[in-house]
């Protein structure tokens, strides 16, 4: 069984937002909403400042609070550890929106909750998610963490990395190389 996830090289990301546009186009994300976005984090004291640019989305956690709090089972863990929402089961109670520490979910204008799916339809065809496939600096990597020979596993063996708020206990599956 695969365990999909992403590795993002913050040393390469220039914040061009191509990933955001690709996602909106591929998944027909409605105007005014986004499944992925850019975060520009600056830490330090002038002139010693450190800026990290990173592309963020649902972390497809191993311990996903959104799945546990869903009253209808609409939020679920699919093959490969991808966290998905079944639209026909979602009642739009927004418990999952409130439970996500990454604020990764939104309510689609049609009423159900939506979020990043890792472009599951593309993954099933053996392709990378749309955001990964268009990145002009090749800072995004998608793959199987259960396979020690995969590119994402090797990157985590070779480079320093961090996840976003792992202390929330959600076991996120997107890692940022630093």
């Amino acid at each position: 069984m695969a365990r999909y996830g992403m590795v993002i090289d913050t040393k390469k990301c220039v914040g061009c937002q191509d990933c955001v546009v690709a996602c909106k186009t591929e998944n027909q994300v409605p105007h005014g909403y986004s499944r992925d976005w850019l975060a520009y984090e600056t830490i330090g004291k002038f002139p010693k400042l450190n800026m990290e640019i990173r592309t963020e989305r649902c972390n497809h956690c191993d311990n996903p609070p959104c799945v546990y709090c869903c009253p209808t089972g609409a939020s679920h863990i699919s093959d490969g550890g991808i966290v998905l929402v079944e639209h026909d089961k979602c009642i739009g109670c927004k418990a999952c929106v409130a439970s996500c520490p990454y604020d990764a979910r939104f309510v689609h204008p049609e009423g159900y909750v939506s979020k990043c799916t890792f472009c599951e339809h593309r993954v099933k065809e053996g392709k990378d998610p749309a955001c990964v496939s268009v990145c002009p600096t090749h800072c995004m990597y998608f793959g199987d963490f259960d396979d020690p020979e995969s590119e994402v596993s090797k990157l985590l063996q070779e480079r320093k990395y961090h996840a976003i708020i792992p202390e929330a206990g959600t076991k996120p599956h997107i890692y940022y190389l630093t």
Binding site: G32, A39, Y40, T42, I43, K94, D103
Partner: peptide, 13 residues
Amino acid sequence: MHELIITRSNHLI
């Protein structure tokens, strides 16, 4: 300083 700028669009958040 510790500043975080996010480009997300989500009127509920």
